[in-house]
Design a protein around this nucleic acid. Sequence first.
DNA 1: CGGCCAACATACCACGGGTATGGCCGGGCA
DNA 2: TGCCCGGCCATACCCGTGGTATGTTGGCCG
Lengths: 210, 210
Amino acid sequence: MPTLRSRRLDYSESTRSALVESAVELFTKRGYAGTSLDEVAKRARVTKGALYHHFSGKQALFEAAFDAVESLVYDRLQKIMTGKGTAWERALGGLKAFIGSCLDPAYQRIAIHEAPVVMGWERWREAEEQCSFGLVRSGLQLLVDAGEVEPVPVEVTSRLLFGALSSAATEIASAADPKKVGAEIEDVIVRMLLRVRRPADEVPERPAAG
Amino acid sequence: MPTLRSRRLDYSESTRSALVESAVELFTKRGYAGTSLDEVAKRARVTKGALYHHFSGKQALFEAAFDAVESLVYDRLQKIMTGKGTAWERALGGLKAFIGSCLDPAYQRIAIHEAPVVMGWERWREAEEQCSFGLVRSGLQLLVDAGEVEPVPVEVTSRLLFGALSSAATEIASAADPKKVGAEIEDVIVRMLLRVRRPADEVPERPAAG
DNA sequence: CGGCCAACATACCACGGGTATGGCCGGGCA
DNA sequence: TGCCCGGCCATACCCGTGGTATGTTGGCCG
């Protein structure tokens, strides 16, 4: 049996998560520069002292918020892309799910827009390496390995694709009709993929069901 | 003959441009949040009073810096894309020039990265509408109108293309070998374009150039 | 049960954006 | 030429906010 969790640890973890949750909300609504730490603390029903006990500063708090929103998207995509179906089906499912995730205002403003500026591009890049960008790349790699598409340079192409999708994210979310724009964008991307798709008879071997 | 410019106007305009130049340098080096107005004024050999006489605030100063770096790129691309050659040649020339422009640290950090965050995405978008993004779209429109490529949805596609190029910009500039990465990216984009290019016999009329 | 330390609260500092006010000089006018 | 006006800019100041240093409490362990 696991050693009994102490009461103190429960409290501590609770306030920490409350702070992160508060930070996510405020950073999403007013942006990084527009939110004060007092405000974050107040919404979490604590003071700045608690905040600085759990985080070394405003940047660290932001990174915690970043991790929070990023992990949600990551988990969703992870499940889809390692799930059932052919490589093609999984890749397209991942694409659809990613576009859908971009409709979340928190993910959009925190992870896509402000993170590179706040965390610094270098740090953001290496964080994305193991998060959503990593999945985009592995998705493309999946298609190439399965012989579904012609061998494009995966590294460069996935960077371009991620950039396109990221910018499309904002376009979708701020459009008058997000569903419609989202569908249009998905359509264009899929058409692009279809252009590099190998005809079925060239595919090495592919069972009828993944 | 033009009315004699007064001495005062010369001075005023001079200090204003000095402020903008100073702002561009510091915003590029230390980012928007990392540069103080006192610093900007000091480098321009004036005080904050002068700064606030010419600009309503820090944001306005940033937008002036944004306009400065953006207009440089715009003028270059404008010349190329309205110059000589077939639509295909001009579009490719514009693509090459845009990637080249993205190597400028000022354009990259100010116009591409921080502008959407500092100015707000909405305002940034409408500014880009008449700047570099406008040229990307008109370039694509050029190809479609000339019948060089199949009729893709220009609006959405150019947004995706611009996003891809923007993110590629940072990738290129921060790479160990920018020239090489830049060439790779350009190659991938061109290959994509070639995939939607119409065979020669379908193009209305086009000289032997290619 | 007594001390101890993590988990906070409180008080304070420093810096930087913004503002109010004062001074200076070029330039139009008499 | 004298003079004052107004644009151009400097100086002094305010205050919100990130960060720090110190005080306080309550759960856990001996």
